[in-house]
């Protein structure tokens, strides 16, 4: 397993290097190459997770190692699809290294064996995990797009940094793409939370149990809901939308990791290590 993981990391690393070269050299060939390498890495990655799923018989997101592995997979997958859809090549500079970092973290965290319980086999749980992770993937890309927006906006305002001005796409394009990522992510997040509640109802007999994870999930959801509402009603676009996308993602990260490490709740076992 470890050697396959090593190959995956190597491919993502190569892809990251390619995207960084693309940032400087601005030749199409580099981003095309990086995209293909990333796709290859994603292919091997899919096989790895598939094999693990098959071997242990339940969805492999039960300890921190598996969770990170799946987080990397969903980020890479979401990036590959959304980049194809929206043609925001330069976003690879953000997505590829981030994926690589997650994978390296997964590599460093030992896999702790978790006693399988019948609870893990529920279809609702699998749906919940997959959908939530797709949401997290697109919302992290929205955060990346927001960062690119702020860099480009700063370059145009200050008139000093021609390096980024030349290399990044237009503000309107970044804004629109970021918005599309948030709509995708928010929709998935909503569906993911609903499937989670249904699963809770099946397992614990109640939709809502005032668990820390649940509370923070709803807080995160509210931040994104506010962002979308503000955009539609009051025209929160551009700079403000970019900053909100970054704040939203920070809240998401806290819900994902922070709650498990700092607070207590019923998702604890999924980040055991």
């Amino acid at each position: 397993m470890n050697s396959i993981l090593f190959i995956i990391i190597l491919l993502y690393l190569l892809s990251s290097a390619g995207y960084i070269i693309f940032l400087f050299a601005q030749k199409k060939i580099y981003h095309k190459l990086s995209y293909s390498i990333m796709m290859a890495g994603f292919g091997v990655h899919t096989v790895l997770i598939g094999v693990e799923f098959f071997q242990i018989g339940y969805f492999p997101a039960q300890n921190l190692h598996q969770t990170l592995l799946f987080a990397g997979w969903s980020l890479a997958g979401v990036f590959l699809v959304l980049k194809y859809r929206y043609r925001l090549n330069i976003l690879g500079v953000y997505a590829a290294p981030l994926t690589t970092a997650i994978m390296i973290a997964a590599f460093c965290v030992p896999a702790v064996a978790v006693a399988p319980t019948p609870l893990f086999k529920s279809l609702w749980l699998i749906l919940h995990i997959i959908i939530i992770f797709i949401a997290e993937g697109s919302l992290s890309l929205a955060c990346g797009t927001g960062i690119l927006y702020l860099i480009q906006e700063h370059a145009i305002k200050t008139k000093s940094n021609r390096f980024f001005l030349k290399r990044l796409p237009s503000l309107e394009f970044l804004d629109r793409t970021g918005y599309a990522f948030i709509v995708t992510g928010f929709t998935m997040l909503t569906i993911g939370l609903i499937t989670g509640f249904i699963y809770a109802q099946i397992v614990w007999g109640r939709f809502w149990s005032w668990d820390n994870k649940e509370i923070w999930s709803v807080i995160t959801w509210l931040i994104y809901a506010a962002l979308l509402h503000g955009r539609l009603v009051a025209g929160w676009r551009g700079r403000r939308a970019a900053i909100m996308a970054i704040i939203g993602f920070a809240a998401l990260l806290f819900t994902f990791f922070g709650v498990n490490f700092l607070l207590e709740g019923h998702h604890d076992e999924f980040t055991k290590w």
């Binding site: 480009q152 237009s170 309107e172």
Partner: peptide, 8 residues
């Protein structure tokens, strides 16, 4: 050129 960096 600048307008194109602001407007898509």
């Amino acid at each position: 050129e600048l307008a194109r960096k602001i407007f898509d």
